Lab assay of single mutants.
Amino acid sequence: MSIQHFRVALIPFFAAFCLPVFAHPETLVKVKDAEDQLGARVGYIELDLNSGKILESFRPEERFPMMSTFKVLLCGAVLSRVDAGQEQLGRRIHYSQNDLVEYSPVTEKHLTDGMTVRELCSAAITMSDNTAANLLLTTIGGPKELTAFLHNMGDHVTRLDRWEPELNEAIPNDERDTTMPAAMATTLRKLLTGELLTLASRQQLIDWMEADKVAGPLLRSALPAGWFIADKSGAGERGSRGIIAALGPDGKPSRIVVIYTTGSQATMDERNRQIAEIGASLIKHW
């Protein structure tokens, strides 16, 4: 067993022997301040990774656009098919120029040779490549099948209805392509620590998230040296922004954090800054 596999296998073990965790309302004060600064709703939840206990939450059962955070769930569904012998990570998928959609920095470079399922998941999570996500959605049967996968996990809230990039439209009061912070946090925890996926697939999923290259201005910008984070960000229309993450000190994750916002007129930089400040408060009061 590799060191990384050992780390993920012992996530519940280490967490069980940690000192009790206590909620700190100071972080919620910052979440509410972010709402004021952005002029928009902000949803927040913080779960203990081992027990699933909610440590703090704000608007945990209000719907927010998922945006690209759905790509972690998508690759979880792909990995479940791999575990069941219905898919192979090494299978190569070929596609054409007509398949390319807006923001496809990886797939646009491989029109000639195609990409493997493993490479597509890596591109979808680490670079948020939209064509990679659409190609992977095709392998599982489309958005409705991802929703069905989530329902089978016990998540009857999260739903995907459309493809990239239309799913980022974020129309107010439109339930399409949305989740709730509580539902997303619980589902992410199941994917990373539950028995739904094999140990190898859980490790692969967290490795992809740990290698995320496009979430630097968010929670990662607030992390002290030595902290662990595996995350996936999302951005959408109407001032929408979000991030889902597993993080913790001492090089291992111990909490799940989900943050979503929508309806702001603020710039992307300002949305990023507010999420980073929430992260800084979380870490300060850990």
Rank of each mutant, 00 (worst) to 15 (best):
C75T: 10
K213C: 12
I229F: 03
L89Q: 05
F64V: 04
T139Q: 13
G242Y: 00
L197M: 09
M180I: 12
P165L: 08
A200T: 12
F17T: 12
L100W: 05
T138H: 15
L55A: 06
F228S: 07
M268H: 09
A34K: 04
A124Q: 02
L223N: 03
P65L: 03
G194D: 13
D33R: 15
A246I: 13
V42A: 06
N98Y: 14
P60A: 15
S96H: 11
E46K: 10
L111Q: 10
D33T: 15
P249H: 07
P143Y: 03
T112W: 15
Q203G: 13
S122W: 11
D231C: 04
L146A: 06
Y103D: 05
A170L: 08
Q37F: 14
L146C: 05
F70S: 07
K109W: 09
L218Y: 03
L73D: 04
T139R: 10
I171N: 15
E46N: 10
A235I: 04
G85I: 04
M127R: 09
E175G: 10
G279A: 11
L136A: 06
E195V: 08
L192G: 02
V157L: 10
W286T: 01
G142A: 04
I206R: 12
L38P: 07
K252L: 10
K144A: 15
R63G: 04
T126Q: 09
Y95I: 11
L191Y: 07
H24G: 14
E164T: 00
S240Y: 03
S68R: 00
F14N: 02
E166W: 15
S122R: 12
R41H: 15
Q97V: 15
E195W: 06
Q204E: 14
M115A: 06
I45D: 02
V72Q: 02
F22Q: 12
G279F: 05
L218E: 02
V78W: 03
S122H: 12
T116Y: 05
A246T: 11
A124D: 01
T147E: 09
S221E: 10
P253V: 09
S128R: 00
L38M: 11
L150I: 13
G90T: 13
E87Q: 08
L55C: 08
A225E: 14
G263E: 06
I125D: 01
A170D: 08
P172Q: 12
T126P: 02
G242T: 02
D174C: 06
E35P: 01
Y95V: 08
E87A: 07
D269P: 09
L205G: 00
A246V: 13
I11S: 07
A230N: 01
N134V: 04
P65S: 05
L160N: 07
H94L: 13
R189F: 12
P12H: 13
Q97T: 13
S2N: 14
L137I: 09
A200I: 11
A222H: 10
L247I: 11
R202H: 08
Q4V: 08
H110I: 05
M180L: 09
A222C: 15
A40F: 04
L89H: 05
I171G: 14
R159A: 06
C75A: 10
A84T: 14
A246L: 14
K30I: 09
E46R: 04
T193L: 12
F149R: 07
L218C: 05
L19V: 15
T126N: 07
A40L: 05
A9V: 09
I278H: 00
E175A: 14
E61H: 15
P253W: 07
D99A: 10
